[in-house]
Amino acid sequence: MAIVVERKKLGFFERLYLPQIISGLWITLKNIFRPRVTLEYPDQAPVLPVGYRGAPTLVKDSEGREKCVSCQLCEFVCPSKAITVTPGEIPADSQYAFIEKAPAEFKIDMLRCIYCGLCEEACPERAIVLQNNFSINGASRAELIYNKTKLYAEGGVLPDKIMKWKRVKDNAELEGGSH
């Protein structure tokens, strides 16, 4: 069934079209004097909203311990397969040897990363965090595959309120055991 759209009957001035043109011109003229909305990016820094998803980084806790335990959930969840984790064991002489596991190498291919933030969501240790860096650039493809050192340098320290592993250790010492 055809739908008949009721059209408004145009008056003489409307059919003349000129008043419409003039009102249009008036609108554009006003616009000329309005403030500009362009953000002049390299000169002006954009204001990033809370929860902005920039480049994924690895963070350390306030003690300087690397939080990642290389569970590889981020690698698993990553839809663009940008993350490659090589798990490794924490050496026995480290004060964190009781945590047992840490990444031997952690690579994120920034060319593949789509900044979806699923890795951050999947991380049980809150070790991988999407921070504010959106300007990711390099002179070669190899340069844009960030390794562990680079990711920790980008990530910095994220204070940890829960301190899960510290509690495990304290508990063990309380019970008289040791790790």
Partner: peptide, 9 residues
């Protein structure tokens, strides 16, 4: 096999 790879991969 310790810490070599997660089984789901």
């Amino acid at each position: 096999f310790r810490f070599k790879m997660r089984t789901w991969f």
